[in-house]
Design a protein around this nucleic acid. Structure first.
Lengths: 343, 343
DNA sequence: ATCAAAACTTCACGCGCGTAAAAATTTATT
DNA sequence: AATAAATTTTTACGCGCGTGAAGTTTTGAT
């Protein structure tokens, strides 16, 4: 009983008995039309299953409903989890999220920003590569497109930053470890990809000072995003050289710790907090896999839900404010210590 | 010294001294214009950094240059790795890939297909959820949009399927395990999310028969995409009940094995192939994390590179063929056994 | 130099929809 | 019932580009 093929908004407007400009208004914001006409349109929508041409829409709209999501490294389940939450919120708010991963490559990040620009997004959630990022490119992008940074901050860029408080991570682990056993030494990469790593080291040093303990930073070779392998190689080297100053190792992040634990296992070093163990290992992030390491990893976890939730809310607020905040906002969420078997 | 603002292709054509239709032709395919004009355009392109409006382009083109990539579960690094390769190939071929993850949810997959339709993609690479997928929705989608399935096949859908040969996985692990030790029992989920799991079980049974060994399938409770936890819980239960008929466990996939290994560690069961070990554990997939388990996991690995490469090539061929093949193609790549410490 | 093929230019239309302005209608307020 | 306010309809234009037709120029082979 379908009258005729509905192809354009013109057709659909005729079929629903509403003028096209009003229908257009409805699709832009269903609440902007009178309740009764909204009902009529939605009835017709069920009868004819028409969808406006997305390209024609975006060509003419002042602002699109697109939202860009950029993460540095999708093979890290940490980001996959955050993306899942963010996508859902965007869709629920009537936006179309587009997901991009820099895959740890500087050039990819630049290209993504470039392509995203032509999508004329209403806003962008950007977790930058960090040290590898082309600062100038990001700065230029942020001045063109309303952008909220998350996970890893770059000084002064974006209208807002939402992330975790690195000091909170480290203070909890250091406090816990030093209270329940030997003082922790800090295990990290020589050239961290991410500014969070630097903040964590600083936090470690300051905490140790506060507790009047001698700090010890172990920096292992390796670059790039293959953290596990770097942690493993570094661990093997340290264990072979007997290079651990204490029997408690605090890793900068969980992926490094996963590699370090693998090294310990290979070398027959028993990790744990119970009697008979040689070493305690703890870490930071609350990585999805941290509960399946051997032994399960004691770690200080991001508040994933809060970070992603707040990042999205901030972006929505930014969009509503016309793309600019008066001054850059910075929100940090505290971590939550998860005590498991490794320390 | 920038003469004036270049906003439209009209402006750019004037600035480059080429007519707009020819410029348009160039952007559609740079090789479709004479070498000398191509050069002129590209010179102007550097001077003026103009980019055509993507929405106006796509609105009028017969076929867009968009390619959709859909994966069932992005938190699995397996897919993240495949996506990385596929994206790169698409970009190099002049396409714009859009990435979507169903995040293990049936409704998300349906929505993605729905949204993707209005992007009028030239082609789609789809790794379906599997058992949870809405078969009718996928079938309808495939009949509208040129689609190549990968990773997990659905009988008869899509113009082609590219994946790994499950029999190859299992035959290698079973052969190796039974040759070097006790016969393997097969560890899997009660209700696998993915048809590959069924094929692997069948392959196990047939291999065991061929080798004249008694098969033993252990099916543990659990649904959804949290394989590690399912493997862990199942492992704990089996170990507590002393429910293992042999001292060799072959897991259906690596994520299950990661959980199973965690259970073994918790229970103090020593896994490995060397003397003094209680149990051997092997698995399938070649998961990026499988080398960091404790002990490192012996597994039969996908040929990631070949699968992603061939999937992309097949899609390109499909697009060039006008979106239809005469008959459905199915390409399976063999696995490669990676011997590590767990078995 | 000749000529056909290839490539380009000019001209023109249309894609599907956003949006502005003015007129007509409905709703809310007193 | 009268009036103001809110909403919708009518009308019309334009977004930036793809594409076709017809005419002109360039190319490359003879």
């Amino acid at each position: 009983m379908r009258e005729q093929k509905i192809r354009t908004m013109e057709d659909f407007a005729a079929a629903s008995g509403i003028s096209r400009p009003t229908v257009s208004k409805y699709f832009n914001d269903p609440d902007s039309v009178r309740q009764s006409t909204r009902q009529k349109i939605e009835e017709a929508l069920e009868r004819f299953e028409y969808r406006p041409n997305i390209f024609a829409m975006n060509q003419n709209r002042r602002a699109t409903k697109n939202i860009g999501i950029i993460v540095p490294y999708l093979a890290d389940p940490f980001f996959a989890e955050i993306v899942r939450v963010i996508e859902r919120r965007c869709i629920d708010a009537g936006f179309s999220p587009s997901l991009f991963s820099s895959h740890g490559e500087r050039e990819r990040e630049i290209d993504i920003l470039d392509n995203l620009r032509s999508l004329k997004p209403a806003g962008v959630l950007l977790a930058p590569l960090g040290r590898q990022s082309d600062k100038a490119a990001i700065e230029a992008f942020c001045s063109d497109v309303p952008t909220v940074l998350f996970d890893s901050s770059i000084e002064g860029m974006g209208e807002a930053f939402v992330g975790s408080d690195n000091y909170s991570f480290v203070s909890q682990t250091v406090e816990y470890l030093s209270r329940t056993g030997d003082r922790p030494c800090f295990f990290e990469m020589m050239h961290p990809a991410n500014p969070n790593a630097n903040k964590r080291r600083d936090a470690y040093l300051s905490m140790m000072q506060r507790l009047q303990l001698e700090p010890h930073v172990l920096r292992v070779a390796g670059e790039g995003w293959g953290f596990e392998e770097i942690g493993r190689q570094g661990g093997l080297k340290l264990l072979a050289e007997d290079g651990l100053p204490t029997n408690t190792v605090l890793c900068s992040n969980d992926r490094l710790a996963i590699g370090f634990l693998a090294a310990c296992y290979e070398k027959g070093v028993r990790v744990g907090r119970v009697e008979g163990c040689d070493l305690r290992v703890a870490s930071h992030d609350g990585h999805p896999f941290s509960q399946f390491t051997c032994p399960s990893l004691t770690t200080s976890a991001h508040d994933y839900a809060m970070v992603s939730e707040h990042a999205v809310k901030t972006l929505f607020r930014l969009i509503e404010s016309g793309g600019r905040f008066g001054k850059r906002e910075e929100t940090l969420f505290p971590a939550r210590l998860i005590m498991r078997d490794s320390a």
